[in-house]
Design a protein around this nucleic acid. Sequence first.
DNA 1: AGAATGTCTGGCGTA
DNA 2: GTACGCCAGACA
Length: 818
Amino acid sequence: MKMENCETCVGFDLSKIPLSSIAQKIMCALHSGDLVDSKNWGESTKIVKPISTSSVKDSVILKDGKNQSLEKKNPKSLTGQTSRGSTKPSPHSSSTGLTGQLSADQKQKNISLASSRCSVPHCDQEASDLQKMEHKKKHFLNENINNENKESMNLKRKHIMYSNSSEKTNKYLALEENAGEVKAQLNSGDSRTFKKYLCDIRYLDDQSKNQLMEMLKQAAALVVTLMYKDGSTQLIANQAQTSSVKGIVMLLKSQVDNLETLACGALEVGFMSQGQCVYIHIELSSLWSQEQEAYHLFARNVLFQTLKCKCPVICFNAKDFVRIVLQFFGDDGSWKHVADFVGLDPRIAAWLIDPSDGTPSFEDLVAKHLEKSFSVKVSSTCGNSSSNIKNKNIYMNLNTLYRLTMDLCSKLKVHGLWQLFCTLEIPLIPILAVMENHKIQVNKEEMERTSTLLGARLKELEQQAHFIAGERFLIMSNNQLREILFGKLKLHLLSPRKSLPKTGPQQHLSTSEAVLSSLQDLHPLPKTILEYRHIHKIKSTFIDGLLACMKKGSISSKWNQTGTVTGRLSATHPNIQGISKHSIQIAKPLNFKGKEDETFTISPRTLLVSSRGHIFLAADFSQIELRILAHLSGDPELLKLFQESERDDVFSTLASQWKDIPMEHVTYADREQTKKVVYSVVYGAGYVASIMGRRRPLPRIHARDQQLRAQAERQAVNFMVQGSAADLCKMAMIRIFSAVATSPTLTARLVAQIHDELLFEVEDTQVPEFAALVRGTMESLQRIQDPELQLQVPLKVSLSAGRSWGHLVPLQEALGSA
DNA sequence: AGAATGTCTGGCGTA
DNA sequence: GTACGCCAGACA
C-alpha cells in the first residue's frame, strides 16, 4: 500500500474516500466482531461470529429491564453477578463471587487489589445468615446501648421484617411509626450518650469513647459525609462549594441490609437498622490546649479506624472524604494507609450505569434510582430550623444514601458492571485523593516573566493587525473579524477554494484556523490573527490560567472520575492533561532587552518542576490504542506489525512501508502524518462497543440515515478503544500504587495521569528501582487478570525522566547524566 | 437605563 | 476521527 492513497484523504471527507487495504481489514474485522465486553473480549479474536449490525446495535441499546437478553448471551460468565430474581440460598460467604474471580491474580502477585475486602452484601444471602445478623444486632444493641426503647424497637423491627413479605401494605405505616419512635427516644437524654441524631464525639466521656471504637470495629457498614462550615453536607447541593469542611458525619450501621429484600423494594427506613450517627469535628483550631490535643488524638483514631475497617465506607463523593481525612492526618506518608480503602461511591456506580449522565447531585440520584417515597431532606436556611431538625435531616439523608448505594450496587451487578466497579473504579478513589493532595511546584518567577513577555508580544500583534486592517477592532471577536475579512476585504471572493466552511445557525463564514490559513496568501491579516490566537491561547490558558490556580507556589489539579463517557479521567483547575506539549517560538517584542532579532522559546510544561531531591519520571504506554485495536480486531497485519517491529516505533515503521522509504529516512513530519492517517482510519472505521464491561448507551439510529449511523459507529469504536486504554491505564495506576504502598522503602508519588502517560515524582536515589517496578507492572498488564484476558499484542512502555516536565529525556540518559 | 451575571458558542490545546 | 477543559465574546 502506498501513502499517496491516504495523503489525499487528509482534510477531506474520509467517508467518501476508498479505504486502504489495512483500513478495509480493520473495518471488516470490526464489523464482524461480536459485542465485546468483560465476558468475551478475550475470545473475540478467536471466534469472529458474523452478526448483523442491527442485532448488535439492539443489544447495545437495551437498558433497564431488557438486559436479560444480555445475560442470556453469556450465561456462564456472570460470576458474582447474580440475577436479581435468584433466591436460592448460597453456601458461600458474601464476597465469594468477587474474591473467587481474583484469587488467581492474588496468588500470582503480592499486589493486593482492594476488591478482596470489598465485602458488600451479596444477593444470595442465606436465610440463616440473616438470622445470625439479627441476633448479632440484638446482642450488640443490648450490650452497648442499654435502653429499653431500643430493645422494644428492635423487637418491632423484627416483627415488621417477618411480616413484610406478606404484608407490604404495612411499610408506610411502619415508616411513620418508627420514625416517631426514633425521634422520641433519640431526643431524650443528654448529649453525652449516643441518644441524639447526631452525637458530637468531642463531648463523649472515656467509656463512651471506648464504646464508639468498639462499634466502629464491629460496624457492618459506615455511611459518611463531609460537613461544611455553613452546616451543609455533600448530600445537599449547596451553591458554590466555597465554604470549607468543618467535620465529618458518620452513620454506623451495625447490620447490613441484605440486597435481596432491597431489590424487592419492600425495605423502608423503618425496617433498617437505623444505626448510630456521630459527628467528628476536624477543623483545626488555632488555640492548642491539652484537651484539644487529646481530642485530636481520639479523632485521629476514629478516622484511622474508619480507613482501616473491614466494612465498606459509603460516601457520596468518597474521594473528597479521603482527601480531607488525609489532610487532617497531616501529610506524613499516611497516604499509605488508604491504599486499600474501600469507598462505595453511588455517584461512580451511577456513572458506570449511565456514563453520559454528567455530574448528578445526590438529590438527582435519589430521584432517579429510588422510589418516590424517598426524598432528600433539605433543611431550610440555616437560621430558621433548629439544630435538631437539621441533625434529623442529616440522619435521614445518610440512611437514604445507604439505601441508594445498596440499590446501585445491585444494579451494577445486574448490568455486569460490578467487577469493573470493584477492581478498577473503587481502588482508584484513594489514588486520586492522594494525587489531589500532592502539590506540583511551579517556577513562578519564570511564569510571570513569560506572562509579561507574551503580553508585550500580543500588544504588538494587535497593533499590527489594526494597522493592516486599517481600523481598530476587537481582535478576539470573531464577528468583528468576519466583518473585516469578508465584509471589508472580501477575501472569500478571492479564495481559491470554492466554498468556505460556514458556522453557526445563521451560517456565517467561519474564521477558524483552517479558513485563515487558506487565506493567508491573499492578505497579511489572517497570518497575524493566527499568530495572535496561538500566543493568546498559550498565555491565557497555560500561563495566566496556571498562575490563577496557584496556591503557595504550587498547583494540584482536581481529578474527575466520572467526567467522561469513555471511562477516561479528566482534570480541572488546572487541566494538567491539556497543557501544551510543544514549545512555541515568538519574536522578541521591540522594547524588550536583548538582541534585535532574538526569539524566545516558550514551553509551558517546562514551568512545572520537581521538588527538591526528587525527579519526574514519566511512563508512557506506546501506541496503546492502536495495540488494543490490533488485539480487538485480530487483524493479522496489525498484529504482525507489533510483534515483529517491537524495537522500532510503529508509526515510523508504517511510514517507511507506506512511503516506501528506508526507516532511517523517515522524518518527524512523515511520522506525524502517518499517525494522523492511522488514527483517522481507526476512529473513522467501524463498529462495536465496550471492553472490560464498560458500556455506553447509544442513541437508536435509523438504519436509513447513513450519516448519523456512521457517526454512531465511529463513536462506538472510539468508545471501545479509548475505554479499553483507559481501563489499562487505571489498572496500571492501581497496581503501581499498591506496590508502593506496601513497599517498606519506596516513597514515589503519582503526580498526574495524561491518559496514556503516568507522571511520578521520585526521590533521586530510588529512580532505578522504581523505574523497574513501573515498567514491569505496566508491561505485565498484557495479561490482565486471568488467562482469558490476554492481549494478543505486547505492551510497550517508554520511560523518561527529568527535573522539569518539559525537559524529560529517556531514562537511560537521565541516569547517565545524574 | 446601565451594570452585573449566567449560558452558549467558536476556537484550540491535550490524549 | 472522538472526547475532554478552558478562554473569550456574544447575548439574554
